[in-house]
Simulated scan of single mutants.
Amino acid sequence: MVIAMKRPELISRILIITGILLAVGAPLFLWARTPLIHARMAEDGGWNPDVIQAETGKPLHLKLTSDDVVHGFAVGQMDMQSVDILPGKVTEITLTFDKPGIYTFFCTRWCGLNHWRMRGTIEVTGGSDIITAGGSSEPASVPLYVSLDLDIDAPHDSPVIPNEKPSAMNGQLLGANLPIDQSLDYYLSHSPYQVFTDLSDTSLTESQKWDAVAYLWQSNTTPESLANGKELYAQNCAACHGENGAGDGVFADDLAEAGEASMQTMEGATDMVMQTPVDFTDPSRILGASPALLQGKILRGGMGTGMPMWGVIFTEEQIWDLIAYIYSFQFEYQK
Rank of each mutant, 00 (worst) to 15 (best):
G171V: 08
V124K: 05
V142R: 13
D151I: 03
Y187H: 13
G175S: 15
P143D: 08
V195I: 15
S207A: 15
P179I: 09
N177L: 10
S128P: 06
W210E: 05
N177V: 10
S158P: 01
V160L: 09
N177S: 14
G134E: 03
K209M: 10
P159K: 03
P166A: 09
Y187A: 12
P192G: 09
L144G: 08
L150S: 04
S183W: 05
I161D: 01
A168K: 11
L188F: 12
Y187E: 11
S203G: 15
D157F: 11
A154G: 01
S147P: 01
L184T: 13
A133C: 00
P143N: 06
E123D: 12
G175M: 14
I130T: 15
D151C: 02
D149Y: 04
N177I: 08
I130P: 00
Q208F: 02
T125W: 01
D129I: 02
K165N: 04
D181L: 08
Q208S: 09
Q208K: 06
D129Q: 12
N163C: 00
T202G: 02
E206W: 00
L188P: 01
P162V: 07
D201E: 13
L216F: 11
V160G: 00
D211V: 09
S136D: 11
T202D: 01
V142Y: 02
T202P: 03
P139R: 07
I130R: 15
G171E: 04
E123I: 14
D157I: 08
V213G: 04
P166M: 06
P179L: 05
S167A: 10
G134R: 03
V213Y: 08
P179Q: 06
S137F: 10
S183M: 09
S200Y: 04
S137P: 00
P179N: 05
H190G: 05
M169Y: 13
